[in-house]
Design a protein around this nucleic acid. Structure first.
Length: 471
RNA sequence: GGCGGCGUUGCCAAGUGGUCCAAGGCGAAGGUCUGCAAAACCUUUAUUCGUCAGUUCGAAUCUGACCGCCGCCUCCA
């Protein structure tokens, strides 16, 4: 039974989807005005693992991630770069898709964009006005926060306390400083869409309400995002959606902890800003995923190169076992003994960990325990049956590959090995063997060292020399 | 000022009342195997969970105080 922490109730609750088979999940995607950063990557990866785990459990997940492709930051960039806002959005949307692919993030079921859903947005704004939750002031439409009695139920904030803070933008037109824009009147030269209130563009919060409703319905199961979105973004989404539909918006709210650099918030002004691309240039997607998987999704995480190095190193254990499995499978020997390995137990521990509010670090620990146990069995007995190796592979594909995404079997297999290259390596291995037999260890070691520098590792075993290529 | 989070071994980090004298990863030390390696395996590496006081038969886990760190309250994953 899956339990998860719900920000709305501040409690760990049993997960009961609205429909027993199908789960609707929405995550706030990027504003496409720049490359996304490593903190965004954490959110996307955590959401990805949660989604994959729900699928592992047999749910049919409809996973919706929006792209905010029109907003102030995009307009600002378009002015700076003297290109249309749509070009900025196009460029960074494409970069976004490249990056998430490299991070091995499974594509969403659908990626709705704000600019492609203006009609839905307008009709929701209209419904809000009709319901007395919004008002138009000279082409700007605002949400009337005081009209929604439950405003603050997600973030635990109270309207009267917020007003005292006096840090909210002062705008003459607003009835209440906390009211937020649903529709922004366009200024000269800005992109706009026509509406009954005049030319303008949608406010930030409304697109998520409108698009989640369109694709997941008025009430859906899971809404996720970074911690900082709790207020005001998600609070506003609730206010908009529930005032428009008069129905509960979301059943479970999931929020991810922040990524810090040396305990400080990452920001461009502090100069400690890393895009996901920067990090991918130095580290593998699997290492990045493993690194994030070793901390609980709700807590903060500190990011630096040493930690990524550790993760990359830890991955070696997994990759080495993969190599062992693959060379055993390739040999395809018949006979051998069945070590009586308890796969069910590991699978149960893996499930129990993730059922407990997605305790991904615990699930990773189970994987490493599994690796150790598998290696122990292999080093104990040298005549193991093929089925055993296939079962090891099957387990790792189901868990570490398909759910966590920290190792890939498919990728390895698809890597096109040149026949010529392999034959040449075999010749070198033969030469080295002769050298070894003649006790010419210097030559033998030299060959091994040279091959190593091309990423080819030789391993002497009882059954001869094997070689592995690093990814 | 309001709301929330955090402080566990050399580093990262899970655990939130007994089965924990605390998982897993990295690092370190010794050993097995090997011509030497690599990989793997074995052993060791927190009598202790920010501090103090309390509740309890029993606490890293609950309560209180204190110290330290951080986030949100404004665009932000």
């Amino acid at each position: 039974m899956l339990k998860l922490y719900n920000t709305l109730t501040k409690q760990v609750e049993e997960f009961v989807p609205l429909n027993p088979q199908n789960v609707g999940m929405y995550i706030c995607g990027p504003t496409v005005y720049d490359y996304f950063h490593i903190g965004n990557a954490r959110t996307f990866i955590m959401a990805d693992i949660i989604r994959r785990y729900l699928e592992y459990k047999g749910y049919n997940v409809k996973f919706v991630m929006n792209l905010t492709d029109i907003d102030d930051k995009i307009i600002k960039k378009s002015i700076e770069e003297k290109v249309p806002a749509s070009d900025v959005a196009k460029k960074y949307s494409e970069a976004f898709f490249e990056d998430i692919k490299r991070l091995r993030i499974k594509p969403a079921t659908i990626y709705p964009r704000a600019t492609e859903n203006i009609a839905e947005i307008l009709s929701m704004i209209k419904a809000l006005i009709d319901n007395g939750a919004a008002y138009n002031v000279d082409g700007n439409v605002f949400y009337n926060v005081s009209s929604f009695k439950q405003y603050g139920k997600l973030s635990g904030k109270r309207i009267d306390e917020l007003e005292v803070g006096a840090r909210v933008e002062v705008m003459e037109e607003k009835q209440n400083p906390l009211d937020f824009a649903l529709w922004k009147k366009s200024k000269e030269g800005e992109p706009y869409w026509k509406s009954e209130w005049g030319n303008g563009r949608p406010g930030w919060h409304i697109e998520c309400s409108a698009m989640s409703c369109k694709h997941l319905g008025e009430t859906f199961d899971i809404h996720a995002g970074g911690n900082d979105l709790i207020f005001p973004h998600h609070e506003n989404e609730i206010a908009q959606s529930e005032a428009a539909t008069k129905k509960p918006f979301v059943k479970y709210w999931l929020h991810f902890g922040f990524l810090n650099i040396n305990k400080e918030k990452m920001s461009k002004s502090l100069g400690n800003f890393f895009t996901a691309r920067d990090v991918l240039a130095k580290y593998s997607a699997e290492a990045i995923r493993l690194f994030f998987s070793q901390a609980h999704y709700r807590g903060p995480v500190d990011f630096n190169n040493d930690l990524l190095d550790s993760a990359e190193k830890g991955l070696e254990k997994l990759k080495n076992l993969r190599s062992t499995i693959e060379s055993a499978v390739n040999k395809n020997k018949s006979g051998g003994v069945d070590p009586g390995f308890n796969f069910q137990d590991f699978e149960k521990r893996f499930k129990d960990a993730l059922d407990d509010d997605f305790n991904i670090p615990q699930a990773v620990a189970v994987i490493f325990d599994f690796v150790k146990e598998a290696n122990r069995t292999i080093s104990d007995k040298d005549n193991l049956q093929l089925n055993y190796y296939l079962a090891l592979k099957d387990f790792l594909i189901k868990t570490a590959d398909n759910v966590l995404g920290i190792i890939s079997f498919e990728h390895k297999e698809m890597k096109s090995d040149s026949l010529l290259e392999n034959e040449l390596i075999k010749i070198l291995i033969d030469v080295r063997l002769k050298a070894k037999n003649e006790k010419n260890f210097q030559l033998a070691d030299d060959i091994r060292k040279k091959l190593e520098s091309f990423g080819i590792t030789l391993k002497d075993t009882k059954e001869g020399t094997e070689f592995f290529k690093r990814d």
